[in-house]
């Protein structure tokens, strides 16, 4: 305990990175898959580096790939940006819980540190905060480790995937669906998830028939999540009443 409080920012940075190493392995596996799919979606090596390096948010990058087109003129920029923002909206809750890391007024350091906040190191940092005073350097160190793992793995995936000339001939066109399905199942936290998933899927099926383009993803996501939130808050109120 005392060691932690006395540790310099540099020590905390290194400790965050070290504790994050097991997480980095799974982030790298996930990044490898994303890189291969990015190649299939038509992203160049430089576009992969830019997206992973600037956006740095895994699940939203998977969703962006589904909307991506290899013909730049056909790229649905508005749909991509809205879909990414919708998927990342949950970060509002994550970074809000990190506020106690920065007592007093928020300085430039606090804003810079937010770039390094991901699902994985957020969980790690919140765990540390429950145990005692935690340095923002811990968040940044663990975030940097994940950043390097993500950037490196997506690049390797993109380069390795380029060796495959006709993806559909090997069933690789199904990799998107398979990956999204596995990602979805990994999000299962209990029965409360069933309604938003089913409603989201049903709304997407209807929207895909009625509306041109890829808006069914955002429509399904919004309708499904609202249904889940509605049901969850109503059943809680019923229990209290």
């Amino acid at each position: 305990m005392s060691r932690r409080q006395n540790g310099s920012a540099l020590d905390e940075l290194a400790r965050g990175a070290r504790l994050c190493l097991p997480v980095c392995v799974s982030v790298a596996a996930y990044g490898l898959v994303w890189g291969v799919l990015a190649g299939q979606a038509g992203l160049s090596v430089l576009e992969v580096l830019l997206m992973s390096g600037l956006v740095f948010a895994g699940s939203s990058q998977f969703v962006a790939l589904d909307l991506w087109t290899s013909n730049p003129a056909a790229l649905p920029i508005a749909a991509i940006v809205v879909a990414v923002a919708v998927v990342n909206l949950r970060y509002v809750m994550l970074t809000a819980t990190l506020r106690p890391l920065f007592p007093g007024r928020l300085g430039p350091g606090a804003f810079a540190a937010m770039f390094a906040a991901t699902d994985e190191n957020w969980a790690l940092t919140v765990g540390e905060m429950k145990r005692g005073p935690t340095s923002p350097a811990f968040l940044v160190g663990s975030g940097l480790a994940i950043y390097l793992a993500w950037l490196g793995a997506t690049l390797v995936g993109r380069l390795a995937g380029a060796a495959i000339d006709d993806p559909a001939a090997y069933g690789l066109d199904f990799a998107f669906t398979a990956t999204f399905l596995a990602l979805l199942l990994g999000m299962w936290r209990g029965k409360a998830d069933l309604v938003p998933w089913l409603v989201g899927a049903a709304a997407a099926l209807v929207a895909a028939r009625l509306i041109e383009g890829n808006w069914y993803i955002i429509i399904g996501g919004l309708v499904g999540s609202l249904a889940g939130a509605f049901l969850e808050t109503r059943s809680r109120r019923d229990r209290l009443a």
Binding site: P196, A201, A204, I217, G220, S225
Partner: peptide
Amino acid sequence: AAWLRHIPGAVLAALIAPA
């Protein structure tokens, strides 16, 4: 809070259902 929590799962479900 519940709404934000449910968004990523609902988006993924919406993504794969038509496929």
